[in-house]
Design a protein around this nucleic acid. Structure first.
Lengths: 196, 196
DNA sequence: CCCCAAGGTTAACGACCGCTAACCGTCCTG
DNA sequence: CAGGACGGTTAGCGGTCGTTAACCTTGGGG
């Protein structure tokens, strides 16, 4: 038997609802009773699945950071074109994540400081590796960008791509595909502008 | 006697420290005692200056939104070049704000939902007007962008420019001037990329 | 058939938080 | 020199929050 991939239903459901609530109202703005109510159980029943409220946030943030990193590494490893093609792949992956898991993207750069020291250190390490992955590709694609500049560009483009939650209600923009395309052009253009 | 511009020292000091703390740990993560301690008085002494903790956040957010809007309008009115020059001026103004008042920029798009309904409605209205100001200029500068696309671009570029808090410790990037220049090129490039 | 693990329930505790009450010193002014 | 506005203080109240305790129900296996 594996120690993971057990009991997918309830635990995953709790994490999903907790992510939504944390993203909407902030970690400190959500009570455990509300999280419980969101999954049909109430209050302290959550403690059969998690040792505490902090642990939910920690698991969410570690999960996000890990997913982003491994997804990015996979795309870099699967590169078959030049550095620009690799960068496009990274951008595409990040956009997919931002569009499909908005609450997680919000948490990922808003609620990091609410973690216990050890968890925060781990998440920061994962995030840093993800950034460095991008920085290497950007430096290869735009050789006239120095590394600190490239790092700043990467952070800025993350801010750009993570702006999807601010796009607000749907319907203002045609569809997911076109939104993704627009974001992609924005990100590429930003790098081009920085390197000019 | 004017109803404003009185007692600049203490009140302004409280607002400044409250902004810093709210940005660092979130509105719900900061107690009034900590805000008091940050300005040398302790706890309920704050209630001689503000009716409550909510009022501090409200005043901060209304102030930021108003400053951004009036600053933007001033720059549009003072336009002496084509739409691209106006857009450059808007970008420059927003960068100045983002670099000089990082905590306020953070609050401005993180803690909006913690306000009472009336205050939130006001702030949202100011923010919307600011966005529309940009959208008009962008539509003039890039006529092949439809209005919904232009609006999405503006939000995305805000996300890009507001990423300065993530740049972390200073010293990684040369100086303020070069950071501002890099951000400016990133923003212009993003619009160019979107319009291509 | 019994039992026990899994996953709930409600009650309640201790800590904390926003805020009020009551009080106090210090100027500035009529 | 009285007096009141101003800007502090400490004590404490009411409510909320995360967490624990004690108990209950159900389903599957020796």
């Amino acid at each position: 038997m594996g120690t993971r991939t057990d009991a997918p239903s309830r635990r995953a459901q709790i994490l999903k609802e907790a992510a939504r609530l944390f993203a909407e109202r902030g970690f400190h703005g959500v009570g455990v009773d509300e999280i419980g109510a969101a999954v049909g159980i109430s209050g302290p029943g959550l403690y059969r699945h998690f040792p505490g409220k902090d642990a939910m946030l920690a698991e969410l943030l570690v999960g996000i950071s890990g997913q982003l990193l491994t997804g990015g590494r996979r795309r870099v490893a699967a590169a078959d074109g030049g550095p620009h093609a690799v960068l496009d792949s990274l951008i595409e992956g990040h956009i997919d994540f931002a569009l499909d898991d908005r609450p997680l993207i919000v948490l990922h750069d808003r609620e990091l400081d609410r973690l216990r020291d050890s968890d925060r250190k781990l998440v920061r390490q994962l995030q840093r590796q993800y950034v460095e992955l991008w920085v290497e590709v950007v430096c290869r694609a735009y050789p006239n960008l120095a590394e600190p500049e490239a790092r700043a560009c990467v952070h800025a483009v993350f801010g750009l791509l993570n702006s999807t939650p601010h796009l607000g209600r749907p319907g203002t923009l045609p569809g997911r595909g076109q939104t993704a395309d627009l974001l992609h052009r924005l990100a590429r253009g930003a790098f081009e502008g920085a390197a000019s």
